[in-house]
Simulated assay, not measured.
Amino acid sequence: MAEATREVTRDTTREEQLLRSAPLFGGMDVASARSLMEKMTRSDVSKGDTIFNEGDDGQALYIIVRGKVKLARTARDGRENLLALLGVGDMLGELSVFDPGPRLARAHAVEDSTVYELPKDVLDEWLDTHLEMSRPIMRALAQRIRRASNTMADLVFSDVPGRVAKAILDLGHRFGRMERGHIMVRHGLTQEELAQLVGASRETVNKALADFASRGWIDVHIGSVEVYEPERLRARSR
């Protein structure tokens, strides 16, 4: 029983640390962070489960402490467009919380995940008594806008191989692990989803991946990629 209690305590402490890595908690002292965490609801989400749907009312934001979640939109003809792949420490659903309106995307788990939910009304009430915490939240929203602006610039100014190289580097930075002297990136995406992420056709993206592999820069597997020459990819992404 004592060992089980220690294990639960370790898991709770680790999840608290992961929560505090989210932009929402940037700059908060321990007491303030814990007071907000106590108002959040923890949920385990199975692979493939939907967290929220496009068009839903935005009544809560979420922070991921385990697993991966993808955001996608559906076109009028039924095609899906992958907007982002999110992982531990990432926040989702915050735009509809701060700008009330329907969800602009659907969020579902790429793998078994754990998220913490913070309802809009709870956050609004908490901010009324913690006005100093508005600054890190504004910073997080500004970072989201900056990423969106960079993505738009890439679509205009970069060719497909350059965007693929940049996407691999970004996924490696966020999800990569050093294994046997190189970077193993287990992203969990299909090649179709990777193509959606860079805004290109699957055939064009596959051609770029095959070219990188033939040069010895990467090795492609189902749901993952091994990166051997990150500097080569970085030069190609510019």
Rank of each mutant, 00 (worst) to 15 (best):
V88E: 06
R202W: 04
K166G: 03
G199N: 10
M133E: 14
L61G: 00
K120C: 01
V160E: 15
R34K: 15
G27M: 09
L127N: 12
G27Y: 13
P230H: 11
A2M: 08
V110K: 04
L141R: 00
N53M: 06
L61F: 11
S214T: 08
D121R: 08
I168M: 12
A105E: 08
E54I: 04
K207V: 08
A105Y: 03
M138F: 14
I222G: 01
Q59W: 00
E111P: 05
G181A: 07
S224D: 09
E111Q: 13
L36F: 05
A105C: 09
G58F: 03
L24C: 07
T151D: 14
R103W: 10
T129P: 14
V156T: 13
E229N: 15
L24D: 01
G78L: 12
E193W: 01
I63E: 00
A4E: 09
D11K: 05
V115Y: 14
H221Y: 10
E16T: 07
A72K: 06
S21L: 14
A235W: 09
L18H: 02
A200P: 01
L141Q: 01
P136F: 04
L197Y: 11
S158R: 15
E7M: 06
R103K: 10
Q191F: 06
L123T: 02
T204S: 00
R73E: 08
K70D: 00
R79T: 09
L123C: 08
V30S: 13
A33I: 14
D159Y: 08
R234F: 15
D159R: 13
G26M: 12
E15P: 01
I218Y: 04
V97P: 10
R238V: 13
R20L: 12
I145P: 02
G87D: 01
S224P: 00
D57V: 03
I137Y: 03
R73V: 15
D29C: 12
D159F: 08
L209I: 09
E203V: 07
M91T: 11
F52N: 01
A2I: 15
N53A: 10
V122R: 14
L19C: 05
G27N: 13
T50Q: 08
M138L: 14
F98I: 11
M133N: 13
V225S: 09
R177F: 04
R215W: 04
R186V: 07
G172E: 07
L83E: 10
L61A: 01
D56Y: 07
I168S: 04
P161C: 13
D99A: 13
V160H: 12
R202E: 12
G93A: 02
A148P: 01
L194R: 07
I51K: 09
A107N: 05
V227F: 11
G216V: 00
L83C: 12
M28V: 11
I64S: 02
E179A: 15
L104Y: 09
D99L: 15
E38K: 04
E203P: 00
T151C: 13
E117F: 02
D49K: 14
R186L: 05
S32W: 15
A107T: 04
A208R: 05
D170E: 12
L104P: 00
R106Y: 11
R236L: 07
A153L: 15
W126N: 09
S96Q: 04
D56M: 11
Q196P: 00
L19E: 05
A142H: 03
A142D: 03
L189W: 00
L233H: 05
G48I: 13
S35M: 03
L197T: 08
